[in-house]
Lab assay of single mutants.
Amino acid sequence: SHFELRVGTITLHFDNISEELAEELEKLAKNGVHADEIRRWWEEWLK
């Protein structure tokens, strides 16, 4: 499923992401983690 995450002024787009993972990314964003860090985390997870 597709997921969009708003982090400050940036909107990150994720394809084929589980609800659980989407929730984890939302938690990171709410805790003030920068969009670049979240994207890096996601790319690492995909490997």
Rank of each mutant, 00 (worst) to 15 (best):
S1R: 11
S1H: 13
S1A: 10
S1F: 14
H2S: 12
H2K: 10
F3A: 01
F3T: 03
F3H: 02
F3S: 01
E4K: 02
E4I: 07
E4W: 06
E4T: 02
E4C: 01
L5M: 04
L5Q: 00
L5H: 01
L5Y: 03
L5G: 01
R6D: 12
G8S: 02
G8T: 06
T9Q: 14
T9G: 15
T9W: 07
I10S: 07
I10A: 07
I10Q: 10
I10N: 03
T11Q: 03
T11N: 03
T11A: 03
T11C: 04
T11L: 08
L12G: 00
L12Y: 06
L12I: 06
L12P: 00
H13P: 01
H13K: 10
F14G: 01
F14Y: 02
F14A: 02
D15T: 09
D15G: 08
D15V: 12
D15E: 11
N16W: 06
I17Y: 03
I17C: 04
S18I: 03
S18A: 05
S18M: 03
E19L: 12
E19V: 12
E19P: 15
E19M: 14
E20F: 07
E20W: 07
E20Q: 10
L21H: 04
L21I: 13
L21M: 12
A22Q: 14
A22E: 08
A22G: 04
E23Q: 15
E23Y: 14
E23L: 12
E23S: 14
E23I: 13
E24N: 07
E24P: 01
E24H: 12
L25V: 05
L25A: 04
E26N: 11
E26T: 15
E26H: 11
E26S: 12
K27M: 12
K27E: 10
L28I: 05
L28C: 04
A29T: 05
A29K: 04
A29R: 04
A29G: 03
A29Q: 04
A29C: 05
K30C: 05
K30M: 13
K30P: 02
K30E: 12
K30S: 13
N31Y: 09
N31K: 12
G32D: 05
G32M: 07
V33I: 11
H34L: 10
H34P: 15
A35Q: 07
A35C: 02
A35D: 02
A35I: 13
A35V: 14
D36V: 11
D36W: 07
D36A: 10
D36G: 08
E37S: 06
E37D: 13
E37P: 03
E37T: 06
I38W: 04
R39Y: 14
R39W: 15
R39A: 09
R39V: 15
R40I: 10
R40D: 08
W41C: 06
W41G: 03
W42I: 07
W42Y: 15
W42K: 02
E43A: 09
E43Q: 12
E44T: 10
E44Y: 08
E44P: 00
W45P: 00
W45D: 02
W45H: 09
W45N: 06
W45E: 05
L46P: 04
L46K: 09
L46I: 10
K47H: 11
K47R: 12
K47F: 10
K47G: 12
K47S: 14
K47M: 13
